[in-house]
Amino acid sequence: MILIVHGFDPGQRNSHVHKLNYVYETLPRHNIAQVIKQFYEARIDVKLLTGDYAETAVNICKQTGIKAYMKHVTGDQVLLMKEEELKNTVEAVSLFVRMFPEAKQQVINALKSNGYIVAMTGDGVNDAPALKASDIGIALGKKGTEMAKQAADLIITDDDLGKVVEAIRQGRKIFSNLKKAIRYIISIHIPIILTAAVPVLLGWKYPHIFTPIHIIFLELIMGPTCSIFFEREPVEDNIMVLPPRKRSISLFEQDELLISIVQGLIITIGVLWLYHFSMNNGASFYHTRTLVYTTLVISNIFLTFANRSFTENFVKTIHYKNRLAPWILLISILFLAVIYFVPLIQSIFGLSTITLTDFLLCTGVAFIAVFWFEIYKTNLYKPEQPVIRKRW
């Protein structure tokens, strides 16, 4: 991914290009060196496009911390290059000098052709074509011309490029939490579907363990968890050191979807084992249903907390600040208490009274079925060596 930053020197236009998802244009400000450093830490490679001479551009790179500035290409050279040559050049070169609108636009198009998502900041009239050509055009609010603002997708109202760093952080947080919610909903629906279907297909003694009311109330727990709880999850510590996503990558990468399916299947194995064990040891239909339903509800609680991170274990994630975490736990416990101890509700759900031993059994099965993932995250997870390489 490529980020391009343009800037101004007193009396003359400059441009700065960052490798990543964007192309940006801004004045060298007091905090620009720190901002550039944060881009690099976020795996955002930085390039500089400037209208100045090479000596001035090199000095700007030194002041702002832009790397790989010893080799440069001019705007005239850019216009003379053939398409393939330019695509190779924008990969290898980080400094472009004596640039003008047509040259900037061609560099942006070359970056996009190489699969990068390009965002650019700019403020001048002659930046408008490049802003328009980029995937995300970002104009400066104070010093930006009206034409630049109209061509841009976003406007930095105070001209502080540091806002872009925060925007990247929040964007990654939203995307990460969205994936957590989707993977959670995939994992928890697998045992619900298979627990309802497998006994019927295999002709078990108690085939119809669930009624619509059981599924409805499970969904009432899972829905808010998916849509509200994971939305409120904080930014993970490592989110700004992860590499940017390429344009060609879909929602799930490598083994992410596989792991979520395995989570659901292992919960299914635990629930069906308890189902079969209870049924074959003389338990009544209602008692078997009580054990199965309780195990599913408790598994849902454990899965919610296990999926707060797919890289950090429970010891770390328990300290994540999410005000909804205790409420999810409390509501789930209250729900179980009501269906067990309020006779009318117990009758509606078709459940029997549960003993402490049975409750601990359900909790133990749910714990084993979910928290193997914590061991995996702690000892076996290697993001650079996924189980499978296919991108879903």
Score class of each variant (00 low, 15 high):
246 K>W: 13
288 T>I: 08
246 K>L: 15
240 M>V: 02
244 P>Y: 00
257 L>N: 06
235 V>I: 12
258 L>S: 02
245 R>W: 13
260 S>C: 11
238 N>F: 11
287 H>E: 15
249 I>A: 13
255 D>S: 08
277 F>C: 02
268 T>C: 01
271 V>N: 02
252 F>V: 13
262 V>E: 03
260 S>P: 11
282 G>Q: 09
261 I>L: 07
271 V>G: 05
266 I>F: 14
266 I>P: 02
237 D>W: 01
237 D>E: 15
236 E>V: 07
242 L>P: 07
249 I>Q: 14
235 V>W: 05
269 I>A: 13
245 R>A: 09
249 I>Y: 12
254 Q>S: 05
242 L>A: 10
266 I>M: 05
287 H>Q: 14
270 G>R: 03
233 E>T: 10
230 F>N: 03
268 T>V: 04
244 P>E: 15
264 G>W: 02
258 L>D: 08
235 V>Y: 09
235 V>E: 14
255 D>G: 02
281 N>C: 08
230 F>E: 06
281 N>T: 13
269 I>V: 15
282 G>M: 07
257 L>G: 07
250 S>K: 03
247 R>Q: 14
285 F>G: 06
232 R>W: 14
273 W>A: 06
277 F>K: 06
229 F>T: 06
286 Y>S: 12
284 S>E: 15
279 M>G: 04
236 E>M: 04
277 F>Y: 15
255 D>A: 01
260 S>E: 11
232 R>T: 10
247 R>T: 15
286 Y>G: 01
251 L>N: 10
256 E>K: 00
291 L>S: 14
250 S>F: 05
286 Y>T: 13
283 A>T: 05
287 H>P: 11
265 L>C: 07
232 R>K: 14
257 L>F: 13
281 N>V: 05
281 N>I: 04
275 Y>V: 03
